[in-house]
């Protein structure tokens, strides 16, 4: 009975919410909205950034992005804190994260494809201010390359020492570039370098620098998360085999 009442209540709220959100014209051209229009006008003109999404993410709302990068950082820290013990107990070199060895085709293809995947990821974040994509997307692409290696080779393991360094230095670069803006007499995260010419690789001032730092950070963090999660599946499999 209690559950039924709860269900009816939830359904009622759901229907009400549906009618509220139904009034919003989704998919319509909302470019003319107040701040959106301003951003579109000013990102090629003032910032010399061809990709307006990047200029919004890294400059106009760069502070939010710094926050989101921090959210990812907390997720890795907290995850490492929760899973820390199980990772330490089981020797990672002997871990068998997949029950069967991957086939030779996967292994050879991995050897060939992984450098290309990393290259594509680096391209996506270095060209973030010119073409669609950016630090987050590029970082994720690189992490998928590492995931490929983790799945193809049972003995492959990630060394957490350099990951910590990359994570820390990349994060500090983002915040540090922001703080430098204050020290040179401007505001936090404001561009203090020359903006260059629109559509050039070296344009947009600190925006591409920040996005490269974000790319490194996201790649390192996701790699760390993948490795941490994959290496705890060991005890579960072992107990299953024993049964």
């Amino acid at each position: 009975m209690k559950k039924l009442i709860a269900l009816i209540f939830v359904l009622y709220i759901g229907v009400e919410m549906f009618f509220v959100f139904y009034q919003i014209p989704f998919g319509m051209d909302r470019v003319q909205s107040k701040v959106g229009k301003f951003y579109l006008e000013h990102s090629p003109k003032d910032l010399k950034v061809a990709n307006a999404v990047t200029s919004i993410v890294v400059n106009f709302r760069g502070f939010d992005t710094l926050g989101e990068v921090t959210v990812l950082f907390i997720a890795t820290t907290a995850l490492g804190s929760i899973l820390f013990r199980s990772r330490k107990v089981h020797n990672r070199l002997n871990s068998k994260r997949t029950s069967v060895e991957a086939s030779m085709i996967v292994q050879v293809a991995g050897r060939f494809l992984v450098p290309l995947i990393v290259l594509l990821g680096a391209y996506v974040f270095i060209h973030g201010h010119l073409t669609p994509g950016g630090g987050f997307q590029g970082g994720v692409i690189i992490a998928t390359g590492v995931l490929f290696l983790l799945l193809a080779y049972r003995q492959f393991s990630v060394n957490h020492e350099p990951i910590t360094w990359i994570e820390s230095l990349a994060g500090a670069t983002f915040a540090g570039l922001g703080l430098t803006g204050i020290f040179v007499g401007k505001t936090f995260l404001e561009n203090f370098l020359g903006t260059g010419k629109l559509n050039d690789l070296l344009s947009g001032g600190i925006i591409p620098l920040i996005y490269i730092a974000v790319g490194f950070k996201v790649a390192a963090e996701l790699t760390g998360i993948l490795d941490t999660i994959l290496s705890i599946s060991v005890p579960v499999e072992e107990t299953e085999n024993q049964n």
Partner: peptide
Amino acid sequence: MVAVNPIYYIALPLFFAFLLPL
């Protein structure tokens, strides 16, 4: 404005939290 700035309440903890492992 360099010595005191409300942004420091947020920017500095983030900066040092990233660097703390090092």
